[in-house]
Design a protein around this nucleic acid. Structure first.
Lengths: 336, 336
DNA sequence: CGCAGGATGCAAATCGTTTTGCAAACTAGG
DNA sequence: CCTAGTTTGCAAAACGATTTGCATCCTGCG
C-alpha cells in the first residue's frame, strides 16, 4: 500500500488499472458484469493503492448515507448500551455507521436531538426515547427517514415498533407477589405520561384485578426512571400508614433507589418489604438482596431493531408497518 | 414550512430569495459580508422552505465530515457510556455527529472496527480501546485522521492522550489497605498486556515498595476486565494457602466477580478479606458491602477528549501533542 | 461471408455544496 | 463631476463518486 501524496480517487485507480472509471465503479458495485480478467486487475490495483471510495461523494450521488442513529433517553442507563451493542452486531457487517445520541434532559431536549440527526441525513433512526411526542415522530416521518421505535404505541404511519411484552412482564411480577401473600402492593412508576410507564401500570392493574384486589390510587406514584426517582417514591410511600408490604418498581434503577431508602430506615427486605424491579440490568443481580425483576432482552431488541430498519432501507415492507413483541422472563431473586 | 415535492436545495433558496447561490452560501457560512437586508431575506426563506444543507455535498467539498467516532473495548462496561455522554456534552452543540463503536471480541476485532470508521472518513477518533496495538494507531495516524486516546502510553506522533492518574490512584488504594493493616495483599488485574493493566500494576508495586512490603508474584494475576475475570482470579487466589487477606482489583467489574466468589465460599468482607475496585461505576456503590474504589471521572474525561479533538480539528495545536492527566479520588466504602 | 446480439467499456451528466476571480454598484474624497 | 476604494453579487470550477446512453468488439449462426 503505497502512500504518496493525496488519497487516490476512483480515477487514479482506473488509470493505474488501464480502464475507465465506469469499469472500476462496476467492479465495486457489481451492477454490471465485468470480465474476470479486468475485475482481478482492478481489485489488485485497489488493494495496492489502498483505495477507499469517498462516502460523501457516494452518498451525494446515491442519496443514502449508510448511517443510522440511535436516540436514547439516558445513555448511562445500562439498558441502552446493551441495545446499542445489539444494533452494532447487525450494522457493522453491513458497513453502516451507528451514531448514538443521548437525549437526556436538562441539557439535551429531544426535539433538538431529532433535528440534529435529521440534519445529518441519516438513513434511519431507532428511537428509544419514551419522552417522544407525536410531533417528534411526525417530524421524522415527514423527512422520509426510516424509523423503528423501541417501545411506544404502534401506529402504522409512524414506522415499525419493537418492544418487549411489558404488560405481560409486569403482570407476572405482580402476580408473583400476590402468590407470595403480599397484601399492600404499591407501585413506583417512571415518568407519568411516558408510554412504558402507562403499559407497565396496565400490567400491574391487570394482575390486581385478576386476583380481585382493590387498586388503591394512594399506592401508585409517578416519578422518574432513575435511582433518585426511587428514593423519592419510597420516601413518600413508606411514610404512609399502614405501610405497603411490597413495592413494585417501574424499572431496576427505581428499585435500587427504593432499596437505598429501606437501608436508611433499617427495614428488612423482603421481610418488612418486598421490592421488585424491571429490565434485569446487571445491577439487579449485584445489590443485596438481589432484585426480583423481569428480564428485558436488550441486546436482542437491538438486533431486531437493526434488522427491521435494514429491511425498510432495502425497500422491503414499504407499505406495511410491523410490530414485534419479544418475550420477557420473570427472574425471581431474593428481594421478594 | 411548506413541504412540496422534493427537498429544497441551495438553488431553490437562492431563487426564492432573489439572490445567487453564492450569496446564500455566504449567509450560511459568514465567510464574506452580506448586507443586513439580504441576510434577513435569505434567512426568512430558509426558514420558510425548511432548507437544510446537504451534509454529503458539503463535506465532499470541504473534506470534513463533522463527525467523530468513539471506539471502546466494551460498551456494556458502564464506564464507557459515561465517557460517551461527556463527549456528546461538547460535540452536540458544534453539530458533530458522534458514532459509538464497540470493539468487543470475539465478534469485533479492533483492526476491523478501525478500518470501518476510517472508511467512513470521520474527522477524528477517540480511541478508548486498551487492546490497541501500535499498528492500529499507526493506521489511524497514516490516514491523517485526528486522534485522541483515552489512556495509553503517550507518544507525540500518536496524538493526544487523556487519562486519569491510574498509577497514583492504585497507589492510594493499596496504601490505604496497608494502613488498615492488611498483610497479604493480592492483585487481580485485567488483560495482561493492556496498558491500563500495566500502569495499575505499577501503582500497586510502588505502594508496596514504599511500605517496604515484599512483592509476591504468586499474588498477582492477570485475567480480563470483566466480572468473569474476577471470578476466575478469586477462585485461583483463594485456593492458595495461606490465603490473601485483601484483593486489589484492576477495576470494579473484577471486584464484583471476586465478591461473587466470597459469597459462594461464605467469606466475610472485609472481615476475612478486603476487596477494592477501580473506576467507581454505579455498581460499586450498589453491591453489599459497597466497594472501596477509586473514582474515575468518566464524563469529565469524555468532555476533555472532545475539547482536545476540536482543538486539533480547528488546526490549533497542530505541531504539539498534549497529555492531560485528570485527578482521581479514593472512595472508601465498606469493603476494606 | 455477413450480421445479429451479447459482452464490455467509454464519455458525460449528475448529485448539492463551497469558493475564487471578476464585474457591477455604490460611496466618498478631491 | 471624476475616480479610487468598498461592498455586494454572479458565473463557473471544483469535490469524487454513480449511472445512463452509446460505441465497439467479439462470437457464432445462417
Amino acid at each position: 500500500m503505497t502512500q504518496v501524496g493525496r488519497r487516490p480517487d476512483i480515477a487514479a485507480v482506473a488509470a493505474a488499472a488501464g480502464v475507465s472509471v465506469t469499469t472500476v465503479s462496476h467492479v465495486l458495485s457489481g451492477r454490471r458484469p465485468v470480465s474476470e480478467a479486468t475485475r482481478a486487475k482492478v481489485e489488485a490495483v485497489i488493494e495496492e493503492l489502498g483505495y477507499r471510495p469517498n462516502p460523501s461523494a457516494r452518498s451525494l450521488r446515491t442519496h443514502r448515507s449508510e448511517s443510522v442513529a440511535l436516540i436514547v433517553p439516558d445513555i448511562t442507563n445500562p439498558f441502552y448500551p446493551a441495545v446499542a451493542a445489539g444494533l452494532q452486531d447487525v450494522l457493522l457487517g453491513k458497513g453502516y455507521l451507528l451514531s448514538v445520541n443521548d437525549a437526556a434532559l436538562p441539557s439535551r431536549a429531544l426535539p433538538e436531538v431529532v433535528r440534529h440527526v435529521l440534519a445529518r441525513r441519516v438513513d434511519g433512526i431507532v428511537l428509544a426515547s419514551y419522552g417522544a411526542t407525536e410531533q417528534d415522530i411526525a417530524e421524522i416521518a415527514r423527512s422520509g427517514t426510516k424509523l423503528v421505535r423501541l417501545g411506544g404505541r404502534f401506529r402504522a404511519e409512524f414506522g415499525d415498533v419493537v418492544r418487549a411484552d411489558d404488560v405481560g412482564g409486569m403482570h407476572d411480577v405482580v402476580s408473583h407477589l400476590i402468590e407470595r401473600g403480599y397484601q399492600r402492593i404499591a407501585f413506583v412508576n417512571g415518568e407519568q405520561d411516558a408510554h412504558p410507564s402507562r403499559i407497565r401500570l396496565e400490567g400491574y392493574e391487570r394482575a390486581m384485578r385478576e386476583a380481585d384486589r382493590a387498586i388503591d390510587p394512594d399506592l401508585i406514584l409517578s416519578t422518574t426512571f432513575t435511582r433518585a426517582g426511587g428514593v423519592e417514591g419510597a420516601t413518600a410511600l413508606l411514610a404512609r400508614s399502614p405501610r405497603p408490604d411490597a413495592i413494585v418498581c417501574g424499572n431496576d434503577l427505581i428499585a435500587v433507589g427504593v432499596l437505598d431508602v429501606t437501608r436508611r430506615l433499617g427495614l428488612s427486605v423482603p421481610g418488612d418489604l418486598a421490592i421488585t424491579g424491571y429490565d434485569d440490568i446487571e445491577a439487579a443481580s449485584l445489590v443485596t438482596p438481589a432484585l426480583t425483576t423481569v428480564h428485558n432482552p436488550a441486546r436482542e431488541i437491538g438486533r431486531t431493531c437493526a434488522r427491521m430498519l435494514l429491511d425498510r432501507l432495502a425497500g422491503d415492507y414499504d407499505d406495511v408497518a410491523r410490530e414485534v413483541v419479544l418475550a420477557h422472563r420473570l427472574v425471581v431473586r431474593e428481594s421478594s
